[in-house]
Nucleic acid binder design. Structure first.
Lengths: 220, 220
DNA sequence: ACATGTGAAGTTATTCACAGCC
DNA sequence: GGCTGTGAATAACTTCACATGT
């Protein structure tokens, strides 16, 4: 399999395409055109074709792409062979929101353990996920072979808990906190910073026309 | 003031710089070098200098940048003259997490009203923010002159509620739902899609080295 | 006629390299 | 020597234009 240098943006779009395609499939669609998928994903048709090409998916001239085959092709590229376990650190409102997202229930990613420092939460089961004490992190992550962490703790604890995740074996973190983590090289970090995003929205709402986003659909 | 075409990425970084600078200021720092700020922001020093230049901030040779002046310069660029009101749609776990986060920083952005369809939540006050019925959206947004919305409702309602926000006067949306909204041109939408981001983390955790992120600090 | 696939061109973003300054 | 500011070079990403297939 050739996964030679796929950009982060392409990975994001592929994930989005797949989710859209799963919806289309449920609606009974058997084929999609690149321009249809583009519209649903708020992108351009050429972009869709390039992304799909980059993972080896082919369409039929004049008939578009076969939906189940596409889902399969994207999944073969995005997913690991076996399901990957994920650990959640922080079971506050945000953490519970993460657990409530059933979207990835049937996916290859499963949140297998949650951690919190509040004794009242420990040993509870929320959305099918058990909450452990932070102290148990190394043991649980080793047992479940977890390499992916979601960081949803208060900002003050972010760096400390991130380090605990790393030393427990985590190699990739989805960081919901506004802190920019200082971690050893080789650890992948994706920041979902709502304060930055909100300020961006505020800025481009006040300065329309200068935005990069904002719903534009070039054609071809 | 020349705010001629600042890219979205620069706006994001400026927001981040400011937050970091506020922290440094609280720690008593009076000056920062571009390379210090770069390290804290996980970026490069040249990038920092270019970003700051683009909003007209100047540093002093050999002494770096004056912290309060920098904060001021960035704020003059990012912030509106008066505080901007924000409306939150959806007071589930995610919505409450948003209220908790944003209350934490008393910026020029204030969540002035929240909306939910659950009667049990209506008229409650959470983190200083009152919850209204969805039916009151037009009246409340007009009264508070709100143009920015945060969408944190279940996926099934996302499109519908987004349209209600728009027709109530909102021109920019921070979208936490996994739905790609189909909205009229001129409305700015920023997607914070945790499912996509988690799959991205999973992918690049499994394929290290091909990532764009992952803590690298080139120098100069 | 209309859709895919793709080299080439265009556009945007980042980094290099160095001038100027203290 | 070490820092800022910036033209020039590079890299990354997107779109154009069109060849090809049915």
């Amino acid at each position: 399999m050739k996964d030679y240098s796929i950009s982060g943006k392409t990975v994001e779009r592929l994930s989005l395409y797949r989710r859209i395609l799963l919806g289309r499939k449920k609606d009974g669609a058997t084929h999609v055109y690149s321009h249809e998928l583009a519209e649903l994903a708020c992108g351009s048709a050429v972009q869709v074709r390039r992304d799909l090409m980059s993972v080896g998916c082919e369409g039929h001239t004049n008939r578009g792409y076969d939906v189940p085959a596409l889902i399969d092709g994207i999944s073969r590229f995005l997913d690991a062979a076996e399901t990957q376990g994920v650990a959640l650190a922080g079971v506050g409102n945000l953490g519970r929101a993460v657990l409530a997202y059933v979207a990835w229930r049937q996916q290859k990613l499963v949140v297998k353990a949650a951690f919190d420092s509040d004794p009242a939460k420990i040993d509870r089961v929320i959305n099918g996920c058990r909450v452990y004490s932070i102290d148990a992190i190394s043991a649980v992550l080793a047992r479940e072979k977890i390499m992916i962490g979601i960081l949803a703790v208060p900002a003050e604890q972010a760096q400390e808990i991130a380090e605990k995740l790393i030393s427990a074996g985590v190699r990739g973190i989805l960081n919901f906190t506004p802190v920019r983590l200082q971690l050893p090289e080789g650890v992948y970090v994706e920041n979902l910073d709502m304060t930055v995003s909100l300020e961006k929205v505020a800025y481009f709402t006040r300065h329309p026309g200068t935005a990069d986003g904002g719903e534009v659909l070039p054609e071809n």
